[in-house]
Amino acid sequence: APHGTGQGFKEVACDDPEVERAALVAVNYLNQHLLHGFRHLLNRIDKVKVWFRRPLGVVYELELDTLETTCHVLDPTPLANCSVRQLTEHAVEGDCDFHVLEQDGQFTVLYSQCHSNPDSAEDVRKVCPTCGLLTPFNDTNVVHTVKAALDAFNAQNNGTYFKLVEISRAQNVPLPVSTLVEFVVAATDCTAQEVTDPAKCNLLAEKQYGFCKANLVHKLGGEEVSVACKVFQKQPQPASVNTAGPAPAVDQAAPAVDQAAPAVDQAAPAGPQADSPASLVVGPMV
C-alpha cells in the first residue's frame, strides 16, 4: 500500500467506467465457468475498493448483483442478446464477490465467489398473483412433465434420439393448472424410432445439445403437453473436459454458484467454459 493513505485502498464510485469494465470482465468470467443453469447479467455494482498492487497494477474488490437470463450456459447466443428473467418468472439473483487485477490495461480475475437466490414468493405474488413459483426438480409434476415432453419431442423426431442432460428450471402454475419446465437434451448414438432402452444410448463424442421449453396442462380426464426445442450445432469437445464423470474440478478462482433449485439425476454437461462465448457462436437449428 502507498504510504500515508491509512486504509491502503482507494474508494471510487461504483459507476466509475474502469470499475464497470472490471465488473463486466468478472461477469463474463462467471458465465464461462458456470456448468449448468442460465447465464447471468450484471444488475448492479454494490461495493468496490481499489487496492494498489506492487510493483504494478490495481486490484478491484467488487461486490456485484447479477440477474439470471433466459440463455442457458450451453446456448451460444451472445450475452448481449440474452434477456433478463422477468419477476413474473420468479427471477433469480446472484450475489458475487470478485477480485479483479488490472495491469497494463488487462483485467484478470483472481478470486470469485457467487451465491444465487430466487426472489421471494411474496414479491412474485405482488406483481403476478397467478404466476408459477420455482419448483424443485424432483417434484412429481416436474419429473412427469419433462418425461412427457422429451417423449413427445423424440416421437416427432425421425432422426437422433435425444437424452435428458439437465432440468434447468421448473414452475408449477396455479391457473391454468400446469407445469412449465426448461431442460437440456443431447444427441445420442441411437435413433429416435428404434430406441428400446434409453440407458444404452450414449452421448455423441462431438456433443450436440438442445434446449427445450415445455408446458403440460393438467385437464380433467387428461393432459396436454407442448414442447419446443432449439438444437444447437455440434460443439467440438475440449480435451480437458470429461462429461462422463462428475463436474470437473475448477481452478481456485472459478466461481461457485448455488442454483436456486436442486438439480436431480443429472450429469454435469460439457460447458463452453474452455472457450469464450464468441468462439461458439453458431446459427441454431430448430
Binding site: 464510485a13 461504483c14 459507476d15 470499475v19 447479467l41 444488475n43 448492479r44 461495493k47 440477474l67
Partner: peptide
C-alpha cells in the same frame, strides 16, 4: 444567532459512491 435559511453556504448533498445504478430491476 439567527441565520436565514439558505445563507449558511452548506455544501450540496454528497452523492454516495455506492451502490451503483440498477441496470434492470432490484429484487
Amino acid at each position: 444567532k439567527v441565520v436565514q435559511p439558505g445563507s449558511t453556504g452548506a455544501a450540496s448533498p454528497v452523492v454516495p459512491l455506492c451502490p451503483g445504478r440498477v441496470r434492470h430491476f432490484k429484487i
